[in-house]
Design a protein around this nucleic acid. Structure first.
Lengths: 347, 347
DNA sequence: GAAAATCAGGAAAACGGTTGCCCTGACGCT
DNA sequence: AGCGTCAGGGCAACCGTTTTCCTGATTTTC
């Protein structure tokens, strides 16, 4: 009863195909791979036999001979999270198109686990490894002298010789400020995350420089806090209570921006009329849930994943790229910076 | 310059190890795997040679012989999303502990892609396949008569003989209602997602039945809408304008609950004093961002992923389990149902 | 001290597929 | 008729590892 259904359940081998087609295994192989010189009729006969048996070549056996596995490992250093997913999607996209399969390894920020995974991946003879993680800050390389190419995505390697693909966060901050300037705001303040976070300092610095380049000063000292909505609400309170004269806030994350939006709105400030707001990350659920919808900076994580995968493929094919590549960000305009004069953000 | 660093870069084979240790490859294999009868001294010599060369056994060659690859495929039917991640983490957890590696396949809801991936996985001779997806609704099996076991996680297969692990959503709804009853609420209404969504009907039915079992009727007809905060806010407006006399709302998702919370709060209603609120999903960013923090139903997605992986491992080891397994939900109490009398939710 | 038992390790055959080389036979040419 | 050419397809080596079988050598046993 159990297995009444199964007929072609047992995977068949090329010798069975060959036998059915009445040829040798070598000939069968050539027929299926379009090699050698065979009569079209023979080729067809083998193909039909393979079809009939549901034959699928054993990748292990094949790779044993070719040395290539068409497989890569993807190590995410901290648990698979909001940032890792788009990166993985992007990478998987580019690799899948290249007929590669992906080994998923979640190292959970544990170096031991990570080394274990590297070892496993090497035993599986992956053609390459992609390392991703939550923070853009540089990390120590996963291992020196690996027999396969490695590309870091989002996270970067502290070894400048390693290939890393990261978002140009300074570019993102610059775009945010320039956008606010473009809609006529001049009294701009920056509310962001923890002061010692790499992304925070990069973005804050770029924001300040962009203002300075226009001969402007921040409307208030930059507010550092946590990556949370609660901090955003608190920051709004601070801005209101100090009576700072502001007409725009650039936030270090969408969550913070959403908190700021709530805080300001509840105090009767209109967004964007009184205060325009720009977030960072372009996290759909935050930018859409916020009232009004948030203008935000998109780091194009999927693009980063895709680029990393493409560079890895290039390296696998003997064209290694060294050093860090920073990909530009994109500003996505929404209601929180839609000025009255403007009929609204373009679709 | 390029490769000055690499010394042990080329992966070494067991015959190199054997040569270095002065034994045959067979003996080297035995030494490294603890097989056969060898002099301790010989064993050690081989191990040191392997260490020195950084030898890692080629998994392809090994699996060619053993027939096992210690590899499973994980197909996520719709794009890797909020639901798939915890599932994947759970599965990866259970599999990693079992020394298995995971092939990640994102089929993006495309049947063609899915079949392509199944084929690829079979060619890679995975020991089994886990299928996950966003909806809990049953789906057609990925393929009939596969030579390897398949387990569905979160999503379920329409073939009752297939092994599926799903959340017991009715149980979740029951817990939500019982919790509200336990804190003394009697005039309860259900606000949820699209009427024809499988999860929606299951939860709504269970909620109504639980109320009925207590001899209660819903305080208002169930409100069906979208899975969004905006709909939650709108629903709050409807409840307020119809003047329904309610003291609790059970929502079909945390996003809806958050919207309801905002809507009610802005109308001056106090949560939980006037109206208690329970969400569904226990999505951290929503339950924490909401004011007050949301009591929610947790489907234990990680547990589902883990269980699915465990069942798959069992099947791989010759202990197949058929049919559907529904895992209970868990209510996570937070401020939105913390009644004044109660000193607050237990940590 | 010889036969038997035990131990250590080597040789070789798998696993499944690919590929270079070689053989065979048909055909065309002189 | 005899030779060369070439298409078609078989043979066998090889990829890296495991495992079975087997052979010497050593130890045990009577």
């Amino acid at each position: 009863m159990e297995e009444t259904l199964g007929n072609n359940v047992r995977p068949s081998t090329i010798s069975e195909v060959a036998a059915l087609a009445g040829v040798s295994t070598g000939t069968a192989s050539k027929a299926l791979n379009g090699r050698g010189s065979l009569r079209p009729e023979t080729r067809l006969r083998v193909q039909q036999a393979a079809e009939q048996l549901g034959f699928v070549a054993n990748a292990a056996a094949r790779s044993l001979h070719s040395g290539r596995t068409y497989t890569v490992g993807m190590i995410t250093t901290d648990s698979i999270g909001r940032f890792s997913i788009p990166l993985m999607i992007g990478a998987e996209d580019a690799l899948g198109a290249g007929q590669m399969s992906v080994f998923l390894c979640d190292a959970r920020d544990d170096p031991i686990r990570e080394q274990y995974y590297v070892r496993t991946l090497l035993s599986r003879k992956v053609d390459g490894i992609i390392v991703t993680g939550r923070r853009t800050q540089a990390r120590t390389p996963i291992s020196a002298d690996l027999p396969v190419p490695v590309v870091y995505a989002f996270i970067s390697s502290s070894d400048p010789q390693d290939c890393s693909v990261v978002p140009d966060e300074a570019d993102g901050a610059r775009r945010a400020i320039q956008h606010l300037l473009a809609i006529g705001r001049r009294r701009i303040v920056h509310v962001t995350g923890p002061e010692h976070h790499h992304s925070v300092t990069v973005r804050a610095t770029a924001a300040a420089e962009t203002l300075a380049a226009e001969g402007l000063e921040p409307a208030s000292t930059t507010l550092y806090g946590e990556w949370s909505e609660a901090w955003g609400r608190q920051a709004a309170g601070i801005l209101l209570s100090t009576g700072a004269d502001i007409d725009a806030v650039f936030c270090g994350s969408d969550q913070i921006a959403r908190g700021v939006a709530e805080g300001l709105r509840e105090a009767g400030r209109d967004i964007p009329r009184d205060v325009a707001l720009v977030g960072f990350d372009n996290w759909d659920v935050m930018v859409q849930g916020s009232r009004p919808a948030l203008t935000s900076i998109d780091m194009d994580l999927e693009g980063i994943g895709r680029t990393a995968a493409e560079l890895l493929l290039a390296a696998v094919n003997g064209d290694p790229v060294h050093g860090q590549r920073a990909l530009p960000c994109r500003l996505v305009p929404r209601a929180s910076t839609a000025v009255p004069a403007d009929p609204g953000p373009r679709k």
